[in-house]
């Protein structure tokens, strides 16, 4: 009985000791520990993702040959259409390069694209965060935009060696500037995520909408990136502006709700756009008081 009590006491003492030790450890050591834990966790995250891919594979294997043939035929048609698009895009790109050379304009390719699978998406932060299977070793840096096709998914918030965390458009940590479809004056509006319950509808807010803006009647206005902020290329879709835009309390501006792209709910694969110049995330990570480091 006494031994048990002593053992319990020893456990508490050990707990207090380790908590105390953690508190007094230098921040570099604590950061290392956190990083090490993230890297230790990474294979497990990979395994979860791979397991899900495998489940999908076996699910497809169970389909009948007729279904697969039909799917293959549909895919072939889509491929053919995409091939055509690809050709025209390639022609447009070449024309663009030629014109830029002729006018001595700098080439516009400022991003390198890295494709990444979604490794894990926790239910508790469904509309806030995803983890992808690419990290520092793939050149990903904090602040890089994350897209799916022409739709914005979010931006990289934390980078580990082989994984990265992405704040989604609907995360409270996300914000960017946008143009509204149908606004001839190209007023710059702000889009920011809002915290919401995991199983509730995703939430993001469009603010600073000028009073003179009226969404086209009966149409859904797309909300698109401006390209002014230096993070997202221009013209990417953030979502659509819901009906029912309202004036602010002081009646200077309007605010509205953003419906994000539907892919945000079941996203499996994303593209990370890595700019060729340092991202703000990197700049802000430099210690305060040492501004000369990036001058």
């Amino acid at each position: 009985m006494d031994n048990n009590r002593q053992g319990a006491k020893a456990s508490y003492v050990a707990l207090v000791f380790f908590i105390g030790l953690w508190l007094i450890l230098p921040s570099a050591v604590r950061r290392f520990n956190r990083e090490a834990f993230a890297e230790f966790q990474a294979p497990a995250l990979h395994l979860v993702g791979k397991g899900r891919d495998l489940a999908r594979y076996w699910e497809l294997k169970s389909r009948s040959p007729e279904e697969l043939v039909a799917a293959s035929r549909d895919l072939a048609r889509i491929n053919a259409a995409l091939e055509l698009k690809l050709h025209s895009l390639d022609d447009a790109r070449k024309e663009n390069i030629r014109l830029r050379e002729m006018l001595r304009y700098p080439q516009s390719t400022e991003f390198v694209t890295v494709v990444a699978r979604v490794s894990i998406r926790e239910t508790s932060s469904w509309w806030q965060r995803i983890v992808i299977r690419k990290g520092r070793s793939d050149g990903i840096r904090p602040g890089c935009p994350v897209v799916f096709g022409d739709r914005v998914i979010g931006r990289v918030s934390t980078v580990h060696l082989t994984t990265s965390e992405v704040d989604l458009v609907t995360s409270p940590g996300f914000r960017c500037t946008a143009f509204l479809e149908g606004d001839d004056q190209y007023h710059v509006v702000h889009v920011s995520g809002r915290a919401g319950l995991s199983l509730s509808a995703p939430r993001a807010v469009v603010s600073i909408i000028p009073l003179e803006y009226n969404p086209p009647a009966g149409q859904i206005a797309k909300v698109m990136t401006t390209g002014l902020g230096g993070v997202f290329p221009s013209g990417l879709t953030l979502g659509t502006l819901e009906a029912g835009v309202q004036s602010t309390a002081e009646k200077h501006m309007q605010t509205g709700a953003l419906t994000p792209a539907k892919e945000l709910n079941f996203i499996q694969e994303v593209s990370v756009l890595i700019p060729k110049y340092p991202t703000a995330g990197e700049i802000l990570l430099t210690p305060a008081g040492k501004p000369e480091e990036f001058r």
Binding site: H190, L228, G229, G230, V231, L284
Partner: peptide, 24 residues
Amino acid sequence: GNRAVARFIEQFPVHGPITLEADM
């Protein structure tokens, strides 16, 4: 002016110690 505001909005963290505030 729009570009300056946009760069701040997109590049600075939402909940950081430095904020962008609007008044009239």
